[in-house]
Simulated scan of single mutants.
Amino acid sequence: MTQFRYLTGLIGRDIQASLSPMLHESEGDAQGLRLVYRLFDLAADGMDAGDLPRLLDAVQLAGFAGVNVTHPYKQAVIAHLDDLSPQAAQIGSVNTVVFQHGRRIGHNTDIQGFAENLRAGLPSGSRFGKVVQMGGGGAGAATAHALMGMYVGTLTLFDPNGARAAELCAALCALHGDGRAVVGQDLTAALADADGVVNATPLGMAGYPGSAIPQDLLRPDFWVTDIVYFPLETQLLREAKAAGCVTLDGSGMTVHQAAGAFEHFTGRKADAARMAANFHAALTGGTRR
């Protein structure tokens, strides 16, 4: 029997292929909750970052429990919130906004989602001495902090925005130890003795074709993971697999961050295993909602 009703959603750009509505609504159904999850695709609606304030006003006034936030607004949304969880404040990135007692509280469940995916998805004994990460935006901040928490020796960070990369590296070093995060200068040199590669850019998403790593720089002793999940096998992962690398797609991160967001929205603990089964069923031909 349905007991409670929740309005939720996702704010982002070029997100029509998102499986987040299915993930949240199917978990709500399983728990006897009437949960509606709506996409707010600013590209499709002819809006941009300047429209975030009025969009947040609208969903808050409409009685939404909260919204997820994805590329490219995980950092831009912070200026329009009343408070941040300690973790969101620490990394300067928000992927979940909860409306509570007239206030907007920003959270980040990407760190947990990424770390859980690595722990469960990479082979036992995988090395984390030196890792190269592509991308230092909102998602990249979360993955970088997760990697530091997993005792990566040195993280080399590449981002087209040099100032953003430097700022993130400084924050990582201040929290996790001097010299553990450095701004990348030469990708070939950084990959020469790397153990793993993380793509935290939108490259590979539907609407953002391409790969963050040139194919000829991939070596079979790498592990390679991508935060993109649609398509599940990005160009990077396809080329890495052909090169003999251990590869890990973004589905686990997506499921675990969604489970965390579901708990923030509803106060109910999500069944991550059930969400993962629903997610993969949808990807392999099940019903999407």
Rank of each mutant, 00 (worst) to 15 (best):
L42P: 03
A49F: 08
A89T: 10
F158K: 04
N108W: 07
S20R: 01
L33G: 04
F128P: 05
A30S: 15
T8K: 02
V246I: 12
A212I: 10
H256L: 02
G106E: 09
A88Q: 10
A30Y: 10
V246N: 10
T154D: 04
L56G: 09
D193I: 01
L147P: 02
M205L: 13
G102K: 13
H280C: 11
A273V: 11
M205S: 06
G32I: 11
T156P: 00
I213W: 01
R164A: 14
L172V: 11
A272V: 11
L147K: 01
T109N: 12
A192R: 07
E25A: 09
A242D: 13
T70F: 00
H145Q: 04
D14K: 07
L35V: 07
R127D: 12
P21V: 01
S211H: 01
A243Q: 03
D159E: 14
S18Q: 01
A171E: 11
L175G: 15
R268D: 04
A120P: 00
S126F: 13
G12D: 01
R13F: 14
M1R: 15
R127H: 08
N68V: 01
R288T: 14
I105Y: 04
I227V: 15
N108A: 14
Q257Y: 09
N117Y: 00
A277D: 09
A272C: 07
G162W: 00
T70C: 00
L155E: 14
L168M: 12
L81R: 04
M148E: 02
L175D: 15
L203A: 10
V69A: 05
G125F: 09
I227F: 06
D29E: 15
M205C: 05
L35T: 05
D57K: 14
Q257S: 06
G63Y: 11
F128M: 13
A259N: 00
G149D: 09
E233M: 12
D48N: 15
V132N: 03
G250Q: 03
G138V: 03
A65Y: 04
Q60V: 05
G125Y: 09
Q235F: 02
R54S: 10
